[in-house]
Simulated assay, not measured.
Amino acid sequence: MSQLCNVLIVEADSKNVETTVPLLRKMNSKVSYVKQGLNVVTHLQKKGFDLVLLADKLPDEDGFRVLRRIREKAELKNIPVLMMLSEDESKKAAFESGASDYIVKPYMPYELVARVTPYISLVLDRQKFTDECQRKDKIAKQLDEAFTEMEIMSRLDPLTRVYNRRAFLEKITDEQIRSRRSQKKFTLLLANIIKCRHYNERHGYECGDFIIKKTAELIHGSLRERDLTARWSGDKFMILLPETESDGLEIIQTKINKVFQESSFEFKGMNHRIDLSFSSKVCTGNDDLDLVLKEIE
């Protein structure tokens, strides 16, 4: 990003403006100018200038009074103001009014360059520092987002976007802890796609993947908000039903069956239906998880 110092010239002498503006623009400055002092404070508040070149004599009032009004505003008190004086004797009045520096008119180009260079350099360096901080903050945010996404992806099955086996085992362990605390049982339900190999062998693995993805979508859509689904193995899905025993299991399993019976899917011009088989286990927080999983599988 190109940095520019935003400079306001307050000067009624058009010849002085004509010589000063090109010099400032060569020094990476964006220059605006006004001829009167009446609305300078409002102008500064609206535009956000970095440096002000203020003439001591203006058509409507003297520049020292304008400068004092600038310094009365808390948000403007730190803006560098270079007074352009008609006579050297006015420098005391300039500093007493709050000037950062001064230059006596008429001035040579090198004098102006010498006076404003420190202020412009400071502004540009500050802008570079701010831009660099923002760039680093953006990179840090992108890295955080990438790490978060990596963490999420490490817990999801890449095909179906439901939990993978490793992440789901953690969820079951968490549910066991809750079950011991609440003394409420939970259920594990294993759904197996019947003849999934048939789709792979007759229609190709692309069709098999399509069937697996649709199965995950339908199961997920059939469950309560608190229930969880994982792709347990190639054609099997494990479902965690918190605070659910046999009666609740029957209701949910019936709902899943109904959804699959009423659904068919078109893949490359052919309609397919998906049939599932189930096995389940109502669990307590004290059950041996390895034994439970072996029994279900």
Rank of each mutant, 00 (worst) to 15 (best):
M1H: 05
Q3Y: 08
C5N: 05
C5Q: 02
C5W: 01
N6D: 07
V7S: 03
I9K: 07
V10N: 05
D13G: 00
T19E: 02
R25L: 02
S32I: 07
K35T: 08
V40D: 10
T42P: 06
K46H: 14
K47G: 09
F49K: 11
L51N: 03
L54A: 12
A55H: 10
D56G: 13
D62A: 10
L67R: 10
L67T: 06
I70Q: 05
I70N: 07
E72F: 04
E72Q: 10
L76G: 09
I79K: 04
I79F: 05
L85Y: 01
D88S: 06
K91A: 01
A93K: 07
F95H: 03
S100L: 04
I103A: 03
I103L: 14
V104W: 02
P106C: 07
Y107P: 06
M108P: 07
Y110L: 10
L112H: 11
V113H: 05
A114L: 07
A114N: 12
I120T: 14
S121P: 02
R126W: 13
R126N: 15
T130K: 10
R135C: 12
K136G: 07
K141H: 15
Q142H: 12
E145N: 15
F147M: 10
R155N: 13
L159P: 04
T160C: 08
R166I: 00
I172A: 12
R178G: 13
R178A: 15
S179E: 11
K185H: 09
L188V: 09
K195T: 02
Y199I: 04
E201T: 06
G204S: 00
Y205R: 05
E206S: 13
E206C: 05
C207M: 09
D209V: 06
K214S: 14
T215Y: 08
T215L: 11
I219C: 14
I219M: 13
E225N: 15
D227A: 15
A230W: 09
R231I: 00
S233Q: 01
M238S: 03
L240V: 12
L241Q: 06
L241M: 14
T244W: 11
T244N: 15
D247K: 15
L249V: 10
I252P: 08
N257L: 14
V259P: 13
F260M: 07
Q261P: 02
S263I: 05
G269F: 04
M270R: 08
N271K: 10
R273C: 06
I274A: 05
D275P: 02
D275S: 07
S277V: 00
F278W: 04
K281Y: 03
K281V: 03
T284M: 02
T284L: 01
N286Y: 04
N286V: 03
D287A: 04
L291T: 03
L293R: 01
E295P: 01
I296L: 01
